[in-house]
Amino acid sequence: MIARRSRGRGRCRRVAPAMRERNSAACGDCEYQAARSSRRKKEMSEHSHDKHDSSASAHYAHVVPLPVLLAVFIALMLLTFLTVAATWFDLGRWNVWIALIIATIKAALVVLYFMHLRYDHPFNAVVFLSALLTLLLFIALALLDSTTYQPDIRALQETMRNAGS
C-alpha cells in the first residue's frame, strides 16, 4: 500500500465526529483507502442496499503504510543502540540529558506513527500533550521544593549528630 498525499491539503484529517457527517464530502479529497480486498467487495455487495453507510465508512481511519512502519522500527532500533553506546563514554552530567533526549525522540516516533497521532484528529494530540504538561508541572514544583529544603535537612542531621556525640 503506497499512500499518496491528497492534493493541496497537507495531510488527511479524518473527519471524526458524527456531527460533521454532513461534511463527509470533504473527505473525498483524500486518497487514502481503508480496504481493497475482494472480501470487502463481497461485504459491500451484501450491504449494497445501504449505499450511504458503505461510502461514509469506507475510510474513516487512515492506514499507516508498511514502509513507514518499518522505517520507524529501524529508526527506533538505531536510537536504542545509540542510547546504549552513549553510556560507553563518560560525559558527566550530560549523560542523563542525552539519554532523555534520545528517549524523547523514540517516544515521539512511537506516538506519531505507531499510535497514528500524526494522522489523527488534533484533539487526541491535545489530550496526550496535556498529560505531559501536567506531569511536568508536578515534577517541576515537587523537585523545586524538595531540592530547596535539602540543606535544611542536612543542617538538622548535622545538629543531631553533634548533639549525640
Binding site: 471524526a16 458524527a18 457527517e21 453507510d53 461514509a56 474513516y60 484528529h121
Partner: peptide
C-alpha cells in the same frame, strides 16, 4: 451511535 465513524471516533 449513528455511524461506525462516530463509534470509532
Amino acid at each position: 451511535f449513528d455511524s461506525p465513524r462516530q463509534q470509532f471516533a
